[in-house]
């Protein structure tokens, strides 16, 4: 039976040192035709996960299925259909853009025209004899993406591809990724530590933090998840007392911030009334900023 997922992992675990676990039971599900944003702060295990997906590191526990095949059974054939950019742009500084692609052309078994095609796609076709070492940061990144596109991949894995790009470069890359997805139907996994950067292009999201998956689903699901998690910032003349009388709204109270959970505007009014009844002056009563970035920071700081 063909599943709808291009890529699936099951209970993926990994540890670099004996007593330090880096990944805990990662279950990724990347649907066919999606742009999957893999989000998490630096050091949360994104690169480790992606490296495992490409077989760059030995799998310790769990399983990885790509194109409905076990990675460990048929790695070479699976890799033929994957384009990848892991961590830093990876190419040979002493070679030109064309020569760099030529190094891999036969490895992926594509013909010479493909080199011109991908160079055009990333707008590097007029770099001539310039060595890659002398490229600007943005050009280096685009060359790395050209290399990832070389095999006509069905799945594209991009690890922090916006690193080092200027705002214009980020917008161009975003357009390119959308185009690849819509016109060529390539499934794309893109990792980033900045949610806002990928929010505008992804269809699905996975949020990882400290080696654990916090959330996985569509963008829509994330929005409703966020809705259930809506919170209210407040500040009063006596926060400690306020926290006590508002026990029902699961208050979170530190000396820096004070927040309550709520659902619907009516509850805000109710909270205000309760405070007034108890002779507490209200200085601030404000729903938390309603964007994903806030949620992301929230999710990740609450666990740290």
């Amino acid at each position: 039976m063909m599943s709808n997922y291009v890529l699936q992992t099951k209970d993926l675990c990994y540890n670099y040192a004996k007593d330090v676990q880096t990944l805990f039971d990662i279950n990724l599900q990347v649907p066919k035709g999606s742009i999957y944003g893999f989000i998490g702060p630096n050091g949360s295990g994104k690169t480790t996960t992606l490296s495992l997906l490409l077989g760059l590191m030995r799998m310790q526990k769990g399983s990885i299925r790509i194109f409905d095949k076990e990675l460990k059974d048929d790695r070479i054939n699976i890799l033929k259909k994957i384009g990848a950019l892991i961590e830093n742009p990876s190419f040979y500084g002493h070679l030109t853009a064309r020569e760099n692609l030529e190094v891999y052309r036969n490895v992926y078994g594509v013909d010479k025209d493909r080199i011109e095609e991908v160079l055009q796609l990333v707008d590097l076709s007029d770099t001539g004899n310039k060595k890659a070492r002398h490229f600007s940061l943005g050009m280096k990144q685009r060359l790395a993406i050209a290399l990832a596109l070389l095999p006509n991949p069905q799945l594209l894995i991009l690890d922090e591809p916006t690193n080092g790009l200027d705002p214009n470069g980020i917008i161009e890359l975003r357009e390119l990724i959308k185009k690849l997805n819509q016109e060529l139907h390539i499934t794309i996994i893109i990792s980033s530590h900045i949610l806002a950067e990928v929010e505008k292009m992804v269809t699905h999201l996975g949020i990882i933090f400290k080696g654990k998956m916090l959330f996985q689903g569509t963008l829509h699901e994330l929005h409703s998840f966020q809705h259930n998690q809506a919170r209210l910032n407040l500040n009063t003349s006596d926060n400690a007392k306020a926290a006590k009388v508002l026990q029902a709204f699961s208050p979170e109270y530190t000396h820096e911030s004070f927040s309550l959970a709520y659902s619907g505007m009516k509850q805000i009014a109710e909270i205000n009334r309760t405070l007034m009844h108890n002779d507490i002056d209200v200085y601030l009563l404000q729903p938390k900023a309603n964007n994903l970035e806030e949620l992301f920071i929230d999710m990740t700081t609450r666990l740290s």
Binding site: L56, I76, I82, I86, S90, G93, Y108
Partner: peptide, 18 residues
């Protein structure tokens, strides 16, 4: 050192070559 200097080992191992 060609691979080490250019940080290209990952690309090599991520490509379909045994």
């Amino acid at each position: 050192q060609i691979e080490f200097r250019n940080n290209t080992w990952k690309q090599v191992f991520g490509s379909p070559q045994s």
